[in-house]
Amino acid sequence: MMNAPEDFDLNGVLYRARKLNAMDQLFLVQKLTPLAASLVPVIQAAAREASNGPLAGALLKMEVGDLMPLAQGIASLPEADTKAILARCLSHVQRGVTSQAGTSWANVWSTSAEAPMFDDLDLFTMLTIVAHVVKKDLAPFFGALFSGSTGAGLLRTATS
């Protein structure tokens, strides 16, 4: 049975993330595992800042220096892997377009053009969407990083 998509708001824009299939999950685990060590300090800093609020909001407010471990981790990935991670995650996300008739959904990523479908999607927004997809679908694999609303496991030790 397929899990229902999960809606989330990012800077006032509604997005819907569909569940990744098992092969896409495996691909992401393989590609993201080397980033785990560089992601931990960033998530810990965001969790401290967020207290009991959403991590995405805290990430948006972080200073550049606080994001450097993650930036260095991303920089260490081969370019092809980085593009594949972005494409794989973004291809499972849609953006809500609201009108008087209601909300319609449009794909965020064009697999044929290998590009975002919206001109206003900047790198930080795309990375935040990717982080949401990873958190939603890979929590069993990265549970120490992503369990709980502001974090438990590794994150709890940083906020306790």
Score class of each variant (00 low, 15 high):
residue 25 Q to E: 15
residue 26 L to D: 14
residue 28 L to K: 07
residue 29 V to C: 06
residue 30 Q to E: 15
residue 31 K to C: 04
residue 32 L to P: 00
residue 32 L to Y: 00
residue 33 T to P: 03
residue 33 T to L: 10
residue 35 L to Q: 03
residue 35 L to S: 04
residue 36 A to N: 01
residue 37 A to D: 13
residue 38 S to G: 09
residue 39 L to R: 10
residue 39 L to Y: 06
residue 40 V to P: 03
residue 41 P to L: 05
residue 44 Q to T: 05
residue 45 A to D: 09
residue 46 A to K: 01
residue 47 A to M: 00
residue 47 A to F: 01
residue 48 R to H: 04
residue 49 E to K: 11
residue 50 A to E: 12
residue 51 S to P: 03
residue 51 S to N: 15
residue 52 N to E: 11
residue 52 N to M: 03
residue 52 N to L: 08
residue 53 G to C: 09
residue 54 P to W: 03
residue 54 P to S: 09
residue 56 A to M: 08
residue 57 G to Y: 00
residue 57 G to D: 14
residue 59 L to K: 02
residue 60 L to Q: 12
residue 60 L to G: 07
residue 62 M to T: 03
residue 62 M to V: 01
residue 62 M to K: 10
residue 63 E to Q: 10
residue 63 E to H: 07
residue 63 E to T: 05
residue 65 G to H: 05
residue 65 G to P: 01
residue 66 D to W: 10
residue 67 L to H: 03
residue 67 L to G: 01
residue 68 M to K: 11
residue 68 M to S: 11
residue 69 P to H: 07
residue 70 L to S: 09
residue 70 L to I: 05
residue 71 A to Q: 15
residue 71 A to D: 14
residue 72 Q to P: 02
residue 72 Q to E: 15
residue 73 G to D: 05
residue 74 I to F: 08
residue 74 I to H: 07
residue 75 A to I: 01
residue 75 A to C: 05
residue 77 L to K: 02
residue 78 P to W: 08
residue 79 E to G: 04
residue 79 E to S: 09
residue 79 E to K: 09
residue 81 D to Y: 07
residue 81 D to I: 11
residue 81 D to N: 14
residue 82 T to G: 06
residue 83 K to L: 11
residue 83 K to E: 15
residue 84 A to M: 13
residue 85 I to C: 01
residue 86 L to Y: 10
residue 86 L to C: 12
residue 87 A to G: 14
residue 88 R to E: 02
residue 88 R to Y: 00
residue 88 R to C: 10
residue 89 C to G: 07
residue 89 C to N: 01
residue 91 S to N: 12
residue 91 S to T: 01
residue 93 V to Q: 04
residue 94 Q to F: 06
residue 94 Q to D: 15
residue 95 R to V: 10
residue 95 R to W: 02
residue 95 R to I: 06
residue 96 G to M: 09
residue 99 S to R: 13
residue 99 S to H: 12
residue 101 A to R: 14
residue 103 T to S: 07
residue 103 T to N: 05
residue 104 S to K: 14
residue 104 S to Q: 15
residue 104 S to H: 14
residue 104 S to F: 07
residue 105 W to S: 04
residue 105 W to D: 12
residue 107 N to G: 04
residue 107 N to P: 00
residue 107 N to V: 03
residue 107 N to Y: 03
residue 108 V to W: 09
residue 108 V to N: 03
residue 109 W to F: 13
residue 109 W to S: 01
residue 110 S to C: 01
residue 111 T to W: 13
residue 113 A to E: 15
residue 113 A to R: 15
residue 114 E to I: 09
residue 114 E to F: 09
residue 115 A to R: 15
residue 116 P to N: 05
residue 116 P to S: 07
residue 117 M to L: 10
residue 117 M to D: 09
residue 118 F to W: 05
residue 118 F to Y: 06
residue 118 F to D: 10
residue 118 F to G: 08
residue 118 F to E: 11
residue 119 D to C: 02
residue 120 D to Q: 07
residue 121 L to D: 14
residue 121 L to P: 00
residue 122 D to H: 12
residue 123 L to Y: 12
residue 124 F to G: 09
residue 125 T to S: 04
residue 126 M to Q: 13
residue 127 L to M: 09
residue 128 T to D: 09
residue 129 I to N: 00
residue 129 I to D: 04
residue 131 A to K: 10
residue 131 A to Q: 13
residue 133 V to A: 00
residue 133 V to L: 02
residue 135 K to H: 12
residue 137 D to H: 05
